[in-house]
Structures are given as C-alpha cells and as structure tokens.
Design a protein around this nucleic acid. Structure first.
Lengths: 376, 376
DNA sequence: GGTGATCCTGCAAAGGTTTGCAGTGAAGTA
DNA sequence: TACTTCACTGCAAACCTTTGCAGGATCACC
C-alpha cells in the first residue's frame, strides 16, 4: 500500500535512480524530467522512506534526546531549543524520559543507537565509565556532566552556588544548609564543592543535607530536618526542591523568608509564580540545548557513521571533537531570601515579624556575568 | 565498524539466518547452537539493527507521540504513562513538540510516518479533515479530539465544566466568565458548550472571553478584562491560564477567592503548590496515555503495515478499530473558589475582607464519578 | 568525419535483516 | 531395510533507497 520510489518511477517512465536523484541531487537531472517526476510523486503522495535511506547513507537525520525527568520544568526549554535548532538543520529530535533511572538510561541509548545519528544525554545518572563505553556505540554529547574525552555542555552551577552563598552571607546568614540532589549528579557534586568553599571563605557554617529526590516531594520531605538543624538559610539543589521545601516549612509554620531564606537553582518558569517568588540561580537551559545540538552535528559531520566500503574515503577513523563548553549562570534575586538573624532589627518579641520580604539584594551581592558561552 | 548479524554468523560458524532466528524465533534453533550464537553476539556486542528489521517486517516497534506543548505540565504525566505502557510491550516512544503550531504538527506526522508504527496525536490543532487525511498515511490515535472514524481518547471536560459551573453557582456566583483556550481545540469547544448549558440551567450569566494562549501569560493577559467584566467567578481553559489569571488579578489588587473565584482544568502538580491552592477539574492524563497506546497497538496488530506480497495473508484490507474512549473527570475543590457576592456577609465597607478562603465546597456541589474508562 | 566534452540516464550492488522453501541428517516406524 | 517424520540449518529473495560506473545522445570543434 505505501507508495515507493518504484511506483513513482513507473508512473513517470524513468528509472528509480532518476527518481532518487530528483530528490537527493536535483541538479543531476534534466529539468523536464525533474518536473515530471515531481508531479508524479506529488500525485501519488510519495515520501522517501527515511529508514531505507538511512540504511545506505548511514545517516538517519534523527537525534536522540535522553532526559532524566520530563516532568521537571527544567527540561522543556532545553528540549524546545534543541528541537528548533535541529529542525533548522533538517534533523528530528526524539525525546525519551528515563525517570531518573540509570538502567533505563542505558537501555535507551542502546535502543536509540541505530535509529539516530547521535544522542544528547541530559543530566545522566549513569557512571562516567558506562557513558564512555556507550559513546563507542553512538556519538554522544553530554549535558550537565563532565566526562573527559567526550563533548560536554556544562552550566557553571559552581559559580552559581558561590554567588548564592555569598548573597546569603551578605544578608547576614551564617548557618546555611545545602539541600543535595541525586548522588550521581555532577551538578550536585559541583554545588557541594563550590558552596563549601564559598561558605568557608565567608566564615559561614554549611550543613549538607541529602541526597534527596530532585522534586517537590524531595524538598518538602526535609522541611522538618531543616527546621531542626537551626539554619537560617537554605540553598536547594533545584527550584522544585526549593518550592517543595517552602511548602513544607509553611506547613510547619516556618515562614519564608522571615525565618528561613531559600535559594533554588534553574529559574524555572514556576519560580516566578510561587509566593514568595523564588530567589534562584538561573541556568541557561535553552542555550544548552542549542549548543548540544550544534556540537553533536559538528561531530557527526567530521566522522560519518556506517562508512561504506566504497565510500568517499573521508572517514579517517574516529576523530572526534571533545570540546567542553561551560555556560554562565546568573543569580536572580526575588522574594524568598531576606536578612539573616544578625541583620534583623532587634525587636524583642517580634521575631516572627520580619522586615519587608520584598527587600532588594544586599549590597555587594555578586551577580554572575551574562550568558555567553565560553569554549575550553 | 558497527557489528552486524554477519559478524556474529562468521564468529559462531553458522549462517546469518540462524543468527537471525536465534533472536526472533529461538525455538527454531538447536539449544547448543543458540548458546554459542548468543555468546558470540554478547562477545561482539551485537545488537539487531531495528531500522533494517523494520524495512522488511514493516514494523519499527516505535510509536510517535505528538504533543502541543511539552512545557505545559499537563503533558508529562501523559507522556510518562504512554512510555511505560509502550515499554511493557517492547515499543519505544518518540516524543515531539509542535509549539501549538498546526503546520509543525502536519510536518511532524509526515516525518514520523515511516519511522513509527503509529502516532498518538495529543490535543491536535489541525483540522479534522487534515487529521483524517493523515490517518491514511500512518495509523493514528487522537487524544483530546473527536474525529469520526478514528480511534479517540477523550476526557469528559464537558462533565467537568458542568461540575465546575454548578459548584460556582452553588457558592452564590451568578456572573461567571469562561476563559477560552485555543480556537481549534476540541476541549475548548466542549467546555463552552457544557458550561453554557450549565449556566443557563442554573440561571447564571456566562461571559465568553477568548480565544487565548493556553499559558500563564495567556491568563495574566486577560486579568484586566476579567476585572472590567464584573464577574465574580472564572472558569479557565486550563490550570496554567488559571494560575496566570490569579497572578494578573493579584497584580491589579484583586484578591482570589475573596473577590473573584477561579477554577482551572487539568489538576497539574503545580495547582497544589500555588497560593491559593487551585480548585480545578482533574483530568485523567496518565490513563489517557496508557489507553491511547493500547488502542494504537491493538489497531496495529489487526492490520500489519507494509504487508509483503508473500506475507501470511492476514492483511485483509484496512480494517481499523474506531472505538472512542471517554475518560471521566473529577472536580477537586481547593482554595481558589469561595462564596459569591450574594453569600457574602453584609459588611458595608469590608468588601475586600472576605470569609475564610479555606472554605469547604458548598452543599450540593457535584463531583464526577471515578476515573473508569467507558468504551463507546 | 572524427574526437572529445557534456548531460543525462540506466544498471546493479550495497546496506542489515527476515523468512518461505528446500536440503541435511538422524531418529522412529513398518 | 526402506520409508516417513522431525528438528535443524542454509539459500536466496525481498524490503527501499543511494550511488559509482558506464552507456547513449547531443553538441562543438578541429
């Protein structure tokens, strides 16, 4: 039933190879023939079978996008940016969700390997060694993870965490908690490292809480623990956790930012909609999506896959770009952070009545530079 | 470089057809041979090329999932459910986003047509006739749209809208606005129809506002218009718009639910996180995802595509299931709805100081039945 | 008229897999 | 022993497309 190149050839009285060329190398065929073939193709509703084409060219014109959790609002902007960038280069994006499960992640790479020209691995939970191994099966670009020898797109969450901690210290907070995310997350490790250093430098005490699930539930679940810990400020692994934490604290009667300040990471759309509006480290997710696609396609072009024996011979091995791109982050100060205990006006019994929550950033609060990409 | 069935055959000293059978029909090959072949395959890291397999079997074991807007939190649960259901049946799901653009939608169907065994079209913005036409190219299951002759998964938003309007009327609201969504949305039409009928039946006046973009921005953009219209309650096309509207009203100094009650649709996770917590019509998105996959696969099995001339002969034409499933919705009453003007205590100048926003549902407020599927 | 160049088109192999058919050898039956 | 049955395996065609090579036609030029 499906109409093939052969049907078009028959209808227009030419050989199938001419039909093929009409689509893939129009300049090689006589204009007259070309219009006839195109007319027939249009008539019959012919569309080239990409799978068959892929079989011989070795290029599917698809790219796979593996995401830790589609329900996390952090990802949609990245997905959309990747899709639009890919579309401009005549590529399609297939998105798949792993539910934060490393096993599903591995399976998905295998499943996609032969159907796409490359895979974007976003916030992987696998081990580095497994990623390296998989990269021999299909070209990979890793987002939010540093893997030596592989092209990576990173967001400078270290810088973001530092800015956040400095912001809090500037507001007078000296006992701060870091709400950790998944253990196997590179972002998580970076944040711990940078936040720890910044706290030490500023003379603050940093309590590590976690690992936790990077969701609202994960955040609200530790509210009690946060309260007991006696900190006056929290930096959360991401916005979802920060929002969950605020909810949880609210349920315990702890007010944000009057009693506890909370900072998130990602600047998801939602962070502008909650009350209080969330202070957060903005990550350039769309730029990351675009960049990752670019890096993948660039790498793909250099080393065509499925090189035919009688190919043009440009396939000189597995030469790969291993550039790593670090994108800048930005601290966005909104209403979920306020003055720390020291800075509060010394009203005896009015501890629960803090100053205007809409307070601006304290002086000297550092803000990261603009979102330019920096290749390394 | 990629290891093929031929490599495995050579390594294990059998013909390629035996290797093929080892994977696709193990009972046909001698246990001894089988283990040897499997060992070699394992050794070489062989994985069947699904594209090549698809070329001959006509089944890719992929299904396409076309989504109006991945950034709308309504969709992730649907996507996840579809993915998990598909995985159980050894299928993979490719998700694609159309940005609410009908043209992108059509293109995407074409692009996916040959790479998947069927497509799930979620909340399409195309015309019915175009959908029917495309369904001749690839098996389609439509979600959130009724197309005669095609299998559809519907959510009973009509029932939900009715329940919402009755709830509002029960609270004493008699001037209500309906915030419409995209013009080409089936859900939108259903809601208008049912809400209009319910308002008439309850003696309330219903103002139609829209069409609007089904996003927070779309909601906040009409806040001014809502205020001017003088209604005391609003039913929004979806939660995102409802939340945007609440934000917008807040910015204008209009309080929810004290001055205006707001009801959303979808019960996205976010609706529990905003303040006030959103009263909304819960739609069974996960069930819809599962059901849609089931219907697609069922249809697929009945009419194998790309039937070979020498095939088993079960392909008796284009017999298709055209069942339509209607899933029930559920009104969830939270804090964004409160008593209407009539019901308010007659405090002269204290119009802005309404009663406890955490009021329970008024008496007689109907709630939809459980989420069972009803085939028709 | 012969030579060469230029354009266009057809031929056929290749890509990795599945599968109907036929062939092999061994075991079972008469 | 001769014949059937059975379990297993190999052969080769088919799926749809791309592409190097070669052939045919046309034309210009010497």
């Amino acid at each position: 039933m499906p109409v093939t190149i052969r049907d078009v050839a028959r209808a227009s009285g030419v050989h199938i190879s001419t039909v093929s060329r009409t689509f893939s190398a129009p300049h090689l065929v006589n204009p007259e023939t070309r219009v006839r073939v195109l007319a027939c193709a249009e008539d019959l509703g012919y569309r080239p079978n990409r799978a068959a084409r892929a079989l011989i060219t070795g290029r599917t014109h698809n790219i796979g996008l593996i995401i830790a959790d589609i329900a996390n609002p952090f990802f949609p902007p990245l997905i959309k940016a990747a899709e639009s960038q890919a579309r401009h280069r005549d590529y399609h994006v297939f998105v798949a969700d792993t539910n934060e499960d490393p096993t599903a992640e591995e399976e998905l790479v295998h499943a996609l390997a032969k159907q796409v020209d490359g895979v974007l691995l976003c916030s992987p939970r696998m081990s580095n060694s497994l990623i390296e191994q998989l990269s021999r099966e299909v070209p990979l670009v890793v987002v939010n993870r540093q893997v030596t020898g592989l092209p990576c797109v990173l967001m400078d969450v270290g810088q973001g965490a530092r800015a956040a901690i400095e912001h809090l210290i500037g507001l007078g907070h000296h006992r701060i908690a870091l709400l950790g995310g998944p253990r196997s997350s590179w972002t998580n490790r970076e944040m711990r490292r940078a936040a720890g250093a910044a706290a030490r430098a500023g003379g603050a005490e940093l309590t590590m809480l976690g690992p936790n699930a990077p969701t609202e539930t994960g955040g609200s679940a530790v509210a009690e623990q946060v309260r007991r810990s006696g900190v006056s400020a929290v930096l959360a692994y991401n916005d979802l956790m920060a929002i969950g934490l605020i909810e949880g604290l609210d349920a315990l009667g702890v007010r944000v930012p009057q009693e506890v300040s909370v900072v998130g990471v990602d600047d998801i759309a939602l962070s502008r909609l909650t009350r209080p509006k969330l202070t957060t480290v903005a990550t350039p997710t769309a730029a990351a999506g675009r960049t990752a696609v670019d890096m993948l396609l660039q790498q793909d072009i250099e080393s065509p896959r499925g090189a035919r024996g009688l190919g043009a011979g440009t396939a000189l091995g597995v030469r790969r770009t291993t550039a790593q791109v670090m994108l800048q982050t930005d601290l966005v100060i909104r209403d979920s952070t306020g003055p720390g205990p020291q800075a509060r006006p010394a009203r005896p019994a009015a501890a629960s009545k803090g100053p205007d929550p809409h307070c601006p950033a304290g002086p000297g609060t550092p803000t990261a530079a603009t979102g330019d990409a920096v290749a390394s």
